[in-house]
Design a protein around this nucleic acid. Structure first.
Lengths: 327, 327
DNA sequence: TTGAAAGCGCTAACAC
DNA sequence: GTGTTAGCGCTTTCAA
């Protein structure tokens, strides 16, 4: 900036002003400064700016996995809004490991972000302490609680499981099974499903549970095979923790020549972009991830512009069971 | 740090040393410093550190889209390596818009990253100028060129199209069609396919081209419908620009009761995690995206540790045509 | 409208 | 092993 200023015949501060608020600088000076910037290829140092102003224009996000469409589409909506407002996003993958989350939060805090996005509502006491101590706005997403660290935008996984159970009972299915991925939220959906199904007088539920890791179509096929071949599950509805699994179940049913939904019915979770177009189309639980991400961004932005420290806030974006042909 | 130092009875610099190189500080001092850090909940300011040391430990990445598994899995491999080495990753989505890429590069450069990852090899003159001017190590991925900005890790899209054409001719297919997404690299694969197919004596190729945007299974179904209903494509092989499309073509074929691969055969691109498990399994072109991302990270890391400015470097990770039952 | 001075919280270089 | 000094490149405040 000093160099640019010298070229334009002004001081370094004036260059700074020209960049941050051009209206504070005379048009002629501005012109000369812009010329000098053009000529030198000057790129301002945002680190120095952030250090001096205590505003980094950086938002950091922690997600279990960036390759999982659930989290990446949420991030997509989130960064869409944030980018418009001049923020950049730093993303880290933390899996489902609390220790890794803790390290990562510390590393992120070191960059003095203006806000932090966290996935889920269960965080170690140390993580909460660090975050609250830093006084940084935090939004927790993809789950819901009345006692967030700061604010929270999500929906109830338990309610989705209940809704699925009520749907399959109302639809008249006599046998039910679950296919569940190895993550805590998926297990909450499954448990709520099983509970509610039992309460409504359903028979015992067959279960396939996968260990942690990506849920794939291939595993969905395996699951239905195991259900049929090992557990004698010849007829009924399968509630899956993701549409990937559900698509796999569907695929295996079709491959075996079973009729869907008469012999094997399937309910998924997520309403992925393929779910309306599978053969047959998938009945599933839809959460508008893009809107959720955007709502999370807006919740944070509101906190940025608030004068006073705000009370915690919880936003339930809800979900929708979409009935298609698979169940 | 000054506060922590005061509590531990040492100066601020000693605290800095304790954090960056504990071996330079006596064990007893170290203990007192750690205690003070614990007590105060001190989190070092990485912005100030980066400003002073001219090392940000930040890598930034520009990808067309983070919801596209192709780019997100590449980033996953990339950040895996980078995280191990103490770097954090800032990601921006830029679509396929050069203007947006240019703005984003400027914004990223302002944060003084230690390295930058760019998707593709086609960048505006201004982008190249900024990047070279900044002297920051750059890795271009998911395509290949002999004249990268700095270094480049990818494969030849043209070669994949050629390989696909040679495969379908060798397999004896008499009719061919393409289903292509609206991105430049997909079009290069298609064009190379069509060229090579013609050279080898193939009949004219039927084409379905989608505008820019996400490639979905639903579009794949539409495409086969259009091919059959509008273009009279009753028999032959369909070369798709992604496995999503290919899966859609497969699904539509199955839904119509057509036999695969006898009536409709399908070749995809990408070898997604579902591709080996579709019904029937998908013949596709595999690129190890995780390994590509890791190779890109290692290429950058090598540049970080190099004393001298390095000559440009090009790494071809290649690809593999995997024959399964769909063609 | 512009400038001078101080300082953001660290690291680097050098002294002791 | 530890401290002192001098920045890093900006923004903020105050004065002109």
């Amino acid at each position: 900036m000093t160099t640019v200023g010298r070229m334009a015949g002004v001081s370094q501060v004036t260059v700074s002003r020209a960049l941050s608020d051009p209206s504070k600088v005379s048009p002629e000076t501005l012109r000369r400064i812009r010329e000098a910037i053009e000529l030198t290829g000057f790129v301002p140092n945002a680190l120095a700016g952030a250090l001096a102003s205590r505003k980094s224009n950086l938002i950091t996000a922690l997600v279990p996995s960036i390759t999982n469409i659930v989290y990446s589409s949420l991030l997509h909506g989130f960064s869409d809004i944030m980018r418009d407002k001049g923020y950049q996003i730093m993303v880290s993958e933390v899996g489902f490991d609390p220790a890794r989350e803790q390290e990562t939060v510390a590393a992120h805090l070191a960059r003095r972000p203006d806000g932090i996005l966290l996935t889920g509502i269960h965080h170690s006491a140390e993580v909460r302490r660090m975050l609250i101590g830093a006084g940084v706005p935090v939004v927790e997403v993809w789950d819901i609680t009345e006692t967030p660290i700061d604010c929270c935008v999500g929906f109830s996984h338990t309610e989705t499981g209940i809704a699925a159970a009520e749907f399959v009972v109302a639809a008249g299915y006599r046998n039910a099974a679950t296919v569940t991925a190895g993550d805590a939220r998926a297990r909450r959906r499954r448990d709520a499903f099983i509970d509610r199904y039992a309460t409504l007088g359903g028979s015992p539920v067959a279960r396939i549970d996968f260990p942690a890791g990506t849920a794939t179509l291939g595993q969905g096929r395996e699951a239905l095979s195991a259900l049929i071949d090992d557990q004698g599950f010849w007829q009924g509805v399968v509630f899956c923790s993701s549409d990937q699994f559900a698509h796999g179940v569907l695929t295996e049913a079709v491959a075996r020549g079973l009729s869907v939904p008469d012999q094997i019915a399937v309910v998924g979770f997520g309403d992925q972009d393929f779910s309306a177009h599978t053969f047959p189309p998938l009945t599933t639980i839809r959460v508008d991830r893009d809107a959720l991400g955007k709502a999370a961004a807006n919740a944070l932005l509101r906190r940025f512009s608030a004068e006073m420290p705000q009370p915690t806030e919880t936003i339930d974006v809800g979900f929708q069971l979409i009935r298609r042909a698979s169940a």
